[in-house]
Amino acid sequence: MMLLWACIAWVLAATCVAMLPMRRQYVPGVALLIAAPVLILWIGFAVAWWAGLLALAAFVSMFRNPLRYFWAKARGQNPQLPPELRS
Rank of each mutant, 00 (worst) to 15 (best):
M1N: 03
A14V: 10
M62A: 09
C16V: 10
R75G: 06
W5V: 03
C7L: 12
I8V: 06
L33V: 10
T15P: 00
M19A: 12
A9C: 05
A18W: 15
W42G: 03
R23C: 01
A51R: 04
L33H: 09
L20G: 04
V38K: 03
R23L: 00
M2A: 08
A51Q: 03
N78V: 12
G76Y: 14
G52A: 07
W50P: 03
V60A: 15
T15C: 07
A51D: 00
A9I: 03
S87A: 14
R68W: 13
R24P: 00
E84Y: 13
A6W: 03
A36Y: 07
F59R: 04
L4E: 00
Q80G: 07
V27W: 08
M19P: 01
A55Q: 03
V27D: 04
V17L: 02
I34A: 14
V17D: 00
L67V: 11
A48F: 04
L4W: 02
P21L: 05
P83K: 13
L3V: 01
V38G: 09
V17E: 00
V11N: 01
R75Y: 04
M2K: 03
A72I: 07
R68K: 13
P28C: 09
I43W: 13
W50N: 02
A57W: 02
V38M: 10
K73Q: 15
I34G: 06
R24V: 02
V47D: 02
V17W: 03
P82W: 06
A35Q: 13
P21D: 03
A51K: 03
L3G: 00
R86Y: 04
W42I: 02
L54G: 13
E84T: 13
P28D: 09
V11F: 05
W49G: 06
Q77I: 08
L33G: 11
R23I: 00
L85A: 07
L4P: 01
L53S: 08
V30Y: 10
M1R: 06
A35I: 12
F70M: 08
L81D: 01
F59E: 08
N78E: 14
G44A: 06
P79D: 05
V11R: 05
L85S: 05
I34W: 15
L3K: 01
L85G: 08
A31H: 14
L33Q: 07
A58F: 15
A13H: 06
P21C: 04
A13L: 11
F59P: 11
A57E: 01
C16Q: 05
L67C: 11
G76H: 10
L39W: 07
R86M: 04
T15R: 04
V38C: 12
Q25Y: 00
L12D: 00
W10K: 02
A51H: 05
R68Q: 10
L41K: 08
N65A: 14
L4C: 02
A31P: 05
A51F: 07
R23A: 02
L12E: 04
N65K: 13
V17I: 12
Q77M: 13
P28K: 09
P37K: 14
P66I: 08
C16S: 04
N65F: 15
F63S: 08
K73P: 01
V27E: 06
P79W: 14
R68I: 15
G76C: 09
G76S: 07
A35C: 11
A51M: 05
I40L: 05
R64E: 13
R75C: 08
A14G: 05
A48Q: 10
L12V: 08
A36P: 10
P66H: 11
Y26N: 12
I43M: 15
L3P: 02
A48V: 04
L3D: 01
N65D: 12
A18R: 09
